[in-house]
Each structure stands twice: as C-alpha cells, then as structure tokens.
Amino acid sequence: MQRDADGVASSPHIHSGASVAGVMRRVLAALAPGVMVSAWFLGPGVLLQIGIATVAALAAEAAMLSVRGLAMRPFLFDGTAIVAGVLLGLAMPPLAPWWLASLAAVFAMVVVKHAHGGVGHNLFNPAMAGYALLLVCFPYAMKSWPAPGAEAWAADVLGAVFLVDTAKVDAVSGATALSFVRDGLRGMKMLAELRPGAGASLLGGGAAWVNLAFLGGGLALLAARVIRWQIPAGFIAGLLAVSLLLYLGDAQRHASPLFHLMGGATMLGAFFIATDPVSSPVTPRGRLVFGLLVGAVVVLIRRFGQYPDGVAFAVLLMNAAAPLIDRHTRPRVYGERDTR
C-alpha cells in the first residue's frame, strides 16, 4: 500500500478507502438540493452559470496541469475544480454575461490555485477569490439579479448571458433583498418604511427556501462526516451574535438576526464555502474561531459594506488569518502538561 522504489513499505498496510474525489463527490451531492431550489426561484440562469463556471474551471485546470507537466487523471477528476466551479456558479448573478463566470473560474484555477502550487496549496478559497475579483472589477454587471417575481425564462436568460443583451437584463433584474435593505438603511430610512412595497417580503424571493435547502445538504455532509461541526456552528453563532447585538441596539436600523440567517448566502457559506478545508484552519478550536469570525464579518459587511453579500469577503479575509489561527489553537499533545 505505502511503498516506494526500494520496496520498503511502512505500516499501515490497510486504508479506509477515503479519497479526495470521494469527498468532493459527496460535497457535490450535498449541494444538489440547494442548486435545485435556487434554480426554482431564480430561474435556469443558475444552472447555466454553474455550467459555464464548471466548464471553464475544468478547462483552466486541464491547461494548468499540462503546463505544469502533471498527470491529468488524478487531478482533473479529483472533483476540486468541479466543486470550485459549482460554488462560483452559485455565487454568480444568474443573468451575468458568460464571460464573467469564465473569467472568474480561470482566475480561480490559474492564479488562486495553481500559481500557489495546485490542489492543497491555495491560501484562498478559489471560488470566492474569483467571485471577489468580479465584484471588485465589474460591480455593475454583478448586480444583475432577477427581481423577485420577474419571470426570466430560457430565452431571456440565454439572451442575457450569451448575447449580453442589457435590455433583457434590465427588464428582469432588480435589487436583492439584502442590498435592498442595506441601501434602504443607508438612505437613513427606517426598517418599517421599507417593509411594504417592492414586494420585499424580507424572506421572499425564495432566499429562505434556498437557505433551508443548503442547510439540509450541509447537515447531510455533517452526518457523513465530510465536514465537522465547528465551522458551520461558529459561522452561524458569529452571525447571530453580531446581528443580534446590532438588532438589540436599534431594531429600526438593523435587520433581524433571522433575516441574516435566512438571507443571502448564509447557509451556503456556513456549510460549503467556509468549510473548504484547504484554506481554513485545521485544528478543531481554530475552526470554531474561524467560523465565528467569518460569521461576524459577514454581518458587518452586509450592514456597512458596499457589496450584495459579505460571505465572499468574510471568508477571504479569514482565509488569510487561517495559519495564524492554527498556530494559536494547537491542541495539547498527549502527556504534555498544559502548554503556556
């Protein structure tokens, strides 16, 4: 099993059968319900974006593998590129032009992943780094979210995505519930004034259902022991704590914790994005700290930031801190008296 050229083989001589590809397959399966529900509420554009991002990610991965002279088989189909593609596609506005998702996927694979050494070596979550690139460079295009209730079906979507027909985009797009609330609050309006009108039932637009679907998939991942409880629990706890604090401070000027919990990419972030093992801490306590910080920063960015959602930047920010967190949360070794 574990051998080298000399024929010297170290124990153990058996293996659990776990593999990177197996882990990624289960992640993809757990994403499926959330993807379906998103597509139900936001239209087929969701699936189209996922397809574009995945194909682009695989193409970029294959190109980088061949440039770096690495074997195609184990790496191209290890599932990491596919998962990154799917997460990126989910983050994309469904009506964004095709080249945006492609650009982000290529950036994620080439710069964020392979320039840092490929699978296992990236400092940042590739999908979120790709998404952040788009948010920074193409903020307007990244706002093409379909307005609640606007029917954006196949023809419109294809037109918007591939022909970059801005008229079609404008016809169906509108502010998301998150940016609607944030922009409203920024305009010094009271939350009560925002509630009627614009169809902005705060949990409307299917966001709550999408979040519930991702929550379900995430719990399945937990049950399958693909991820551990620390990051999602920390994420949700951090998010609830900060939003509750703000809400208790001034309920009229801040959205409710429930809104934060069930809005935006909360559950996707908590269970699927922040839990990316490569770019998050590895110690159990470190993961809890990491989750708490990501959750807290998500609320701060949603409330005070400029972008539709805070998950991407919160995750990236804490990715940078992961080595530091790991270093400070090393567990006590068996037989060691309490360190420090």
Binding site: L293, L300, I301, F304, G305, Q306, Y307, F313, L317, L324
Partner: peptide, 17 residues
C-alpha cells in the same frame, strides 16, 4: 465595508505584531 475590513485587519495586525 471598509470600516469592517480595516478593523479586522488592524486587530489581526496587532496580534501578529
């Protein structure tokens, strides 16, 4: 947004320092 990021960066920076 920038306040939040700046705050976080400051805290982390202080820790590392």
């Amino acid at each position: 947004m920038f306040t939040a990021i700046a705050m976080a960066v400051l805290v982390l920076g202080a820790l590392m320092a």
